[in-house]
Simulated assay, not measured.
Amino acid sequence: MTASPADLRARAQTASGHLPALILSAERLAAMIAPGAHGLRRGGPGEDFWQYRPAGPGDTARSIDWRRSARSDTQFVRDREAQTAQAVGLWISAGQGMGYAGAADRPTKSDRAQLLALALAMVLLRGGEKVGLLGQPARAGRVQADRLAEQIATMVAARGDADAPPVDLLRPNQRLVILSDFLDDPAWVQGLLSRAAGIGVKGVLMQVLDPDEEVFPWSGAVLFRSLSGAIRHDSRDAGGLREAYLARLFERRDWLRRQATGAGWQFGHHCTGHPPATALSWLYQVLAD
């Protein structure tokens, strides 16, 4: 069933009510990370020092750093690091499973993923990068941060427990950050990474889970039901499922890590029971490498 324009408008208005809190939280989180332009890790036009290297054919006398060269018998050139704004695309799963929180005092997985995405965008934008949601134009500047905040805050949940980014929205030579719980059928990950490798897209897979999903604390008779209601499992001995569940979780993470590594991507995971600053710092660093 397709939602009517009135329904969509009502959802957007409800979601936008959380916008000020999301922006404030993201700004506080982003302030913990020192912004800086991302170098391309090679010599070229730029302001930052990169390395000293021995002078070679083609280097002019003007390019030689005579102060550094005076300390040895070799002439050295002072290279600067090339700096080019990179386009970073963000995709946040809107699957209904992302709405799970194991306790009232915890954020949902969706809330935490949205916070991380917006805070990361703010840090990147302060460093001069271009950022946008996947499928939307990547732009630079403060106005883009406000635009992203509104787009993220008004995201509408998918109809099912999980979703996947459309591979046809990938663009050559961009960086991509995917935030999801990756608990559903992960076959789409292979298709995404295969397409990405073919057009020079690098990026990060970040798994976001609730503490309950990390340790499986249940025991006794438990009715497990997905948030969409599509999946139900009535267990009389939930504790007996713990070992098998944790083994499957570790297998899934190992598989995701291998898939990411094979495509030149990075894989990380974050628990909503932990401070978000650690995850944000990691995301920023791997994008800078």
Rank of each mutant, 00 (worst) to 15 (best):
Q190Y: 05
L192S: 02
G239Q: 05
L280H: 06
A260Q: 04
A21M: 13
G229R: 14
T74C: 08
A113G: 04
R62P: 05
I199P: 12
G262E: 11
T84A: 10
L120H: 12
V222N: 11
A260W: 03
R11H: 09
Q86W: 01
S69P: 12
G56F: 03
A31D: 09
L90R: 05
D185K: 00
H270E: 05
Q13T: 04
D111S: 15
T154G: 13
A34E: 14
A34V: 09
G203Q: 01
R236G: 11
G264S: 05
E81S: 09
A288L: 14
H269F: 09
V201I: 04
W188S: 00
G39V: 08
A12T: 14
P107D: 10
G36S: 07
A82F: 12
S72F: 06
Y284G: 06
L183I: 00
I231G: 00
S25M: 15
G200R: 04
A113Y: 01
R80D: 11
R236A: 13
A117W: 10
A158F: 00
L115T: 06
Q114M: 15
D237M: 10
A37N: 10
L280S: 03
L29W: 06
G273F: 08
L8R: 15
D181S: 00
D146E: 12
G198P: 05
R258T: 04
L90T: 12
T2M: 11
G99T: 00
G191P: 04
H38P: 02
G262H: 06
S4H: 04
H274C: 09
V143R: 15
R67A: 03
H274I: 05
L209N: 11
G89I: 01
W255T: 07
L116G: 05
W66D: 03
A30E: 02
A187M: 00
L118T: 00
A12H: 11
V77P: 06
T272L: 13
D105E: 13
G56Y: 07
W265K: 01
W188I: 00
D237N: 14
G273L: 13
W265D: 02
A260G: 01
R257P: 02
K130H: 15
G198Q: 13
D212M: 09
G160K: 08
A61T: 13
Q207E: 09
A15R: 15
V189A: 03
D210S: 10
A3S: 07
W282T: 04
V286T: 13
R67T: 04
C271L: 06
P20Q: 13
G95E: 00
R68V: 05
P20Y: 06
V77Y: 10
V77I: 12
D48T: 09
P172F: 02
W50N: 00
